[in-house]
Amino acid sequence: MQALLWAGRRVLTGLVTLFGIAVLVFMAARIVPGQTADVLLGPLATPEQRETLTEEMGLNEGLLTQFSIWIGNVLQGDFGDSIVSRQPVLEELALRLPVTATIALLALLMALLVGIPVGTVQALRASRKGGAVASRIVSGLGISVPDFVLGALVVLAFSTLPLGITIGNFTSVTDTFWRGVASSLLPAAVLAVFCAAATARTTRDAVLGVLVEPYIQAAVARGERPATIVRRHVLRNSSIPILTLTATLLAYLLGGAVIIEGLFNVPGIGSYFILAMDRRDYAVIQAGVMLAAVVFVLMSLLVELSSSLIDPRVSTIGKAS
């Protein structure tokens, strides 16, 4: 019952967060200087054309009216039409989501496959002098290389050397599944570097945190084999921070791969968002941010709920604080 109350409370805060974001993104989009008419119609437009466009977009209503109309439509699942393509924004986003999601999932997969083992080993060897310094620098390097620098180098390498993968002609998984996966590999790999390093660091910290617990010392004293200790106690008990990070990374990858999508000419959510920003395509900007926020809030909720299943103390802590 208590856990149920706790879960209900989390859902409620999630909704409050989403409403806050809706207000914020709406206001932010409106104070962006330069009116849509300026940007879309160009300097040669007549005042009549500008007037028509402004009216068509409902931009001459009061801000509060605009907001209440927008939020009312959003609640009915209508995010409006893109002013450029004249298609419903939700359809436009739905077309691009699979592309971004493929890359995000691939990157996450690579990151976890590399990051968790590396982090665990790093933690287990933390007390050894030399190795610790080297491993710190390597994983430090991973989170220190900006994705656009790495991405630029990868684009250059694969377009000048015959390495078997080309940069252009991106194929979506919805067209041809395996070709879609193949053309997602490079951007995913570039994104995975940072994520893998971050995973390794979090895993290392989490494992180190578990290793100081008395039950580990007890297990060592009982004479259990190190491999058994890692499997039975360490990884199980350090899984919550890793789970939390996984959710954060996935949300980051789904909403934040803006630069990499541009560099690899990937027609995903990120590059669409940039275009919409340049053109003051308000409906797209608002829907894009809302989508990213919904993903983030949902992921956080899922993680907290599953954390409370792994370790029931989570829900009581949540209530106490």
């Binding site: 967060t17 974001i21 104070i31 909403g255 803006v258 940039i274 990213a292 926020a293 983030f296």
Partner: peptide, 24 residues
Amino acid sequence: MRIGDILYAFPAILLALLIAASLG
């Protein structure tokens, strides 16, 4: 904490872009 949640739920680069576009 709620305000923190709201800002935290924006992907960093989207938030940064939105602010950069608003302020010029």
